[in-house]
C-alpha cells in the first residue's frame, strides 16, 4: 500500500495553556473521504486548519505526500495551499467582493486562466450550489445557508485535489443539505478528490464518509467506517451517535 496523502502524526496544540489537541494521529489515503466528528469545542476546526498550516502545531507533524509541511518555504507552501480548497465554518467570504468575485478570486490570482475562463468556471460552480441568481450580491445580503454554499463554491472553484469542509451542512435546510451532500459525494466519485469534512450532522457523515474519526478529550476516540461506528460498543461513541445527554461525555 502506498503512503497516505496526508498523515497527521501525534499532533498537539494548546491555546493559553488550555490543551485542545493532545496527540492526534490520522492517516488520510488518497481519494478517501474522512469525516471528523466530536463535541462542540473539541478542536475539530483547529485540527483541520493545521492541514494547510493556518495553525502551527506545538508538537507533532502533518505530512503531505510524505513531506513535513512545516518545513515548506513560502513559495512551496503557496503551491501546496493551491492544491487545497477549504470551506470555513463561518464561510469567511470576503465582504468587500461580490459572491462571484469571491468564487473567482483564487482563480484570478493563480493566473492560470483567462478572464473569460474564470467567468465560465464561476458561473458553473455557482450553478452547482444553486446560487446563480446571487452572483452579483454582496455577502452581507446573503442568508447563513447561502453564505455556506457560496463558501463551498469558492472552495471547489480551482478544482483542488483535496477539499476541507468545516461543517458543510450546518445551518442548511434538509433538502439543501442533501443537495450539498450529493455534491460532495459527486466530487469524490467523479473527480476522485480527497476530502476531510468536519460535521455534527450524522446523516451527512454517514452519507459522505469512507471513514469516520471521532475526537474526544483531545484524542482520537474512534476511527472506522460508518457501519463500524453504528455497531460500536464504546460508551462514549454510543452516547455521541445516539445524541443522549446521559453517559460518560460531560458537557
Amino acid at each position: 500500500m502506498d503512503t497516505p496523502l496526508i498523515q497527521i502524526e501525534n499532533l498537539c496544540k494548546s491555546f493559553d495553556g488550555h490543551e485542545v489537541l493532545s496527540g492526534v494521529s490520522i492517516d488520510i489515503p488518497r481519494g478517501d473521504s474522512i469525516v471528523v466528528i466530536g463535541q462542540s469545542g473539541c478542536g475539530k476546526s483547529v485540527l483541520i486548519k493545521h492541514l494547510i498550516r493556518l495553525l502551527e502545531p506545538d508538537s507533532g507533524r502533518v505530512l503531505f505526500d510524505g513531506e513535513d509541511i512545516s518545513r515548506l518555504k513560502t513559495g512551496e507552501l503557496t503551491r501546496l495551499r493551491q492544491r487545497f480548497g477549504m470551506l470555513f465554518q463561518s464561510a469567511a467570504l470576503f465582504d468587500s467582493l461580490t459572491v462571484a468575485e469571491n468564487v473567482g478570486l483564487g482563480l484570478k490570482e493563480s493566473r492560470r486562466h483567462s478572464a473569460a475562463e474564470v467567468e465560465d468556471i464561476v458561473s458553473e460552480k455557482l450553478d452547482l450550489v444553486g446560487l446563480s441568481d446571487a452572483a452579483d450580491k454582496s455577502p452581507a445580503e446573503l442568508s447563513g445557508g447561502m453564505r455556506k454554499r457560496a463558501g463551498l463554491a469558492r472552495a471547489i472553484a480551482a478544482s483542488p485535489d483535496v477539499l476541507l469542509y468545516d461543517e458543510p451542512t450546518t445551518g442548511l435546510d434538509p433538502v439543501t443539505g442533501d443537495m450539498i451532500n450529493q455534491l460532495i459525494v459527486d466530487l469524490r466519485e467523479k473527480l476522485s478528490v480527497t476530502s476531510v469534512a468536519v460535521t455534527h450532522d450524522l446523516t451527512s457523515a454517514y452519507r459522505i464518509a469512507d471513514r469516520i474519526v471521532m475526537l474526544y478529550n483531545g484524542r482520537v476516540q474512534f476511527a472506522g467506517t460508518p457501519d463500524e461506528i453504528k455497531s460500536s460498543t464504546d460508551p462514549v461513541v454510543k452516547q455521541f451517535i445516539s445524541g443522549s445527554a446521559t453517559g460518560p461525555i460531560q458537557v
Binding site: 493556518l54 513560502t74 493551491q82 487545497f84 470555513f88 463561518s90 469567511a92 467570504l93 483564487g106 480551482a158
Partner: peptide, 17 residues
Amino acid sequence: TMKVTEQIDALESMGIS
C-alpha cells in the same frame, strides 16, 4: 474584522499572500 471573521485565513488558504 477580516482577521476575526477568518477572511485572512481564507486568503491564505487560497495561496494568496
